[in-house]
Design a binder for these strands. Sequence first.
DNA 1: CTGTTAGCGCCTTCAT
DNA 2: ATGAAGGCGCTAACAG
Lengths: 339, 339
Amino acid sequence: MKKATIRDVADQAGVGLGTVSRVINDSPLVSKATRQRVNQAIADLNYVPNPTARRLSLQKTLTIAAIVPFFTRPSFTERLRGIENSLAESEYDLTIYNVETLERKARLLQEIPHRARVDGVIIIALSPREEDLPLLSQADVPVVLVDSNHPSLDIFNRVVVDDVEGGYIATKHLIDLGHRRIGYISDPLENPFNFTSSLFRYRGYIRALKEAGIAFRSDYHGQGEHGRFEACRLALNMLSLPDRPTAIFAASDTQAMGVMEAARDLNLQIPEDLSIVGYDDIEVAEYLDLTTIRQLLFESGQRGVELLLDAVENPSRGPVCEKLPTELIVRQTTASIAG
Amino acid sequence: MKKATIRDVADQAGVGLGTVSRVINDSPLVSKATRQRVNQAIADLNYVPNPTARRLSLQKTLTIAAIVPFFTRPSFTERLRGIENSLAESEYDLTIYNVETLERKARLLQEIPHRARVDGVIIIALSPREEDLPLLSQADVPVVLVDSNHPSLDIFNRVVVDDVEGGYIATKHLIDLGHRRIGYISDPLENPFNFTSSLFRYRGYIRALKEAGIAFRSDYHGQGEHGRFEACRLALNMLSLPDRPTAIFAASDTQAMGVMEAARDLNLQIPEDLSIVGYDDIEVAEYLDLTTIRQLLFESGQRGVELLLDAVENPSRGPVCEKLPTELIVRQTTASIAG
DNA sequence: CTGTTAGCGCCTTCAT
DNA sequence: ATGAAGGCGCTAACAG
């Protein structure tokens, strides 16, 4: 049997189709009696409004796009979960684009933020480069950047976490425990996707060192492709130095896992021989008893959606930047240098 | 400036708008010269066809829905990644629905698989219950179930992995190593979401035991909420038995992590005092050197999409069921009982 | 309050 | 090969 249309419902109820539309959209301009009959007809025919037609008429797509790199990484899925969660209660659908290549990043950044495609875009972690800025700022649809940093990004709606602060707190924690030889392992500070978290946490690391009068040593900074393996390799190098660090701050929990692996390989006890701090507080962090910096991943997604929907409804309001707090979670992988 | 429509392009190129449509859709019924001019106009006006209008006219939404429970679980995100990956090369968009409550499961199963909403639905791990069957089988849009089991599901397109076989292989591996006291830790065999993997792997476990002439002991089976914590608790109980198991098969790598935690708490060496086998071979499995059963998660998503798109284009073709292979990955958490 | 009409932007016959 | 016209299903503005 064919799908019922608004026309069918109107006929069935013996009213004009405009009236049916009013009922559907909860217009107050309908008498109780007619509303009654229309609803009856709707039920009888098992009518459901066609979303596409509705969208065309409303000039709204009722969908939000999320552009997210490497969406299997725990810190990103958790943000995504916050996004989905907020959207679930709205009338908007969520369409997701995963980015694992630069080519796709460029294409999506160009294609998606345009009217008639989606009503709004939420971009995770992909800090635009200079050359992307004009494109993005001309987007004819609101954009919210979550966890995206750049000196001149004030023109966008954003949800950010203070990574400099996070890096500082992590390092300060180690310094307070008496460590002076503190390593830092991260993604490349400069990287093709322009992820900035490693860089900003690095700055916090540097700041804490400087404040404590500790000189930065370049051989205490290892940068490499994101992931356990590379982090492990970097840690092995660093821990094989004649005066190896007594503590390592890793730019993510995932990388902290690599450092733990290296320690294991070298028969270093944690935290007796080596203290480790991670970043993110993803789920496994607790399992590993990893001291780490917690950021509000889920909430960042939620807030991002709230900002976005608000912007969709108030196209005129200026960009908003919201900063989420950062917190040190002390577990079992850090200890004072005395033992 | 307002968005250009097909009308504007037609005027600019001095042709009828039907011709523009033909150009857009690569119809052969256009002369080289006109095509040339139209493309020029399209470029000049920076014209992009309005997807919504296109969809309404085509009577296709050009979007696929993925319904997935707890999508932050690594085994699900990896499947999702396969889905997104296949869809990226198509003209279809992916909209995602995360399910974390029964209420939402019921609502989505009811609302999504209907014409005009999406062109097809891919459902991960949510085995329908009896009462869901009529609803699903009346879906007026193709449905593909990935990792979903039920005796009478042959009416759907499916991508499955033989969990019974997987459970068997895992257990057999332990038996071959000389273990006789083998525990099994899993989700509840019966559970609200009707996840069946724990149950099927249980059957494989039982089969292997029986084949080896080992009696099943109910105190060697721990079932509880999915997750490390509960798995750890269950393992602690089981490992505190007077004749504790010498090996434990966990229904997922995540749960295997809980078992490892329990072993650590009890000062049991792995694999000397306790062998452990997980399931899924998620990324951390390698980090933990966990022996596990690998299933093709990413590929299952890819194949699911292929089946789905094929079904969308050939609405008449019967349901297909595709089985993906399962493989034992031996690492460091299992050893022969001798030591 | 309610029926009617004119779009929303595109695709697809149907003539020419 | 191409232009014109009808229709996809719904919303909104306009009469009454």
